[in-house]
Amino acid sequence: MVAKSLSEVAEALGARVVTRGSGLAVEIDRVYAGDRISDLLERSSPRTLVVTNLASRPLLRLADLMDVPAICFVDGKEPEAEVIAAAQARGTVLLVSPVGVSETCGRLSRLLGEGEGGRS
């Protein structure tokens, strides 16, 4: 897998950048998609982009804990204001992909070379 900057990721996904965190130059080289907190906890890393339906404050707390640089929500669903505020406070980049989890992961795996699919 190759490392890609979050700006490249956002571009490849056609994703909307909701919060910029400390900047889109931060690089990721893993993607993990899932909706279970326990899975996300174990699979997250400072180089992981988390793709999830879970647009919640606990998720943002988890991202902060595990130093996850960016989260991508799916299906074009705008996160709630309190989620955006939590992301801003912690410097987490939030993206909203216009497509669902599987298509999002498909595009990401094309971008990153090969993908590691998670349960969702």
């Binding site: 909706d35 279970r36 907190i37 326990s38 174990e42 999830t52 879970l54 919640s56 606990p58």
Partner: peptide
């Protein structure tokens, strides 16, 4: 609904 309770906690 928030993604908790997958039954992985204690094993993890």
């Amino acid at each position: 609904e928030l993604g908790f309770g997958a039954g992985m906690g204690l094993p993890s």
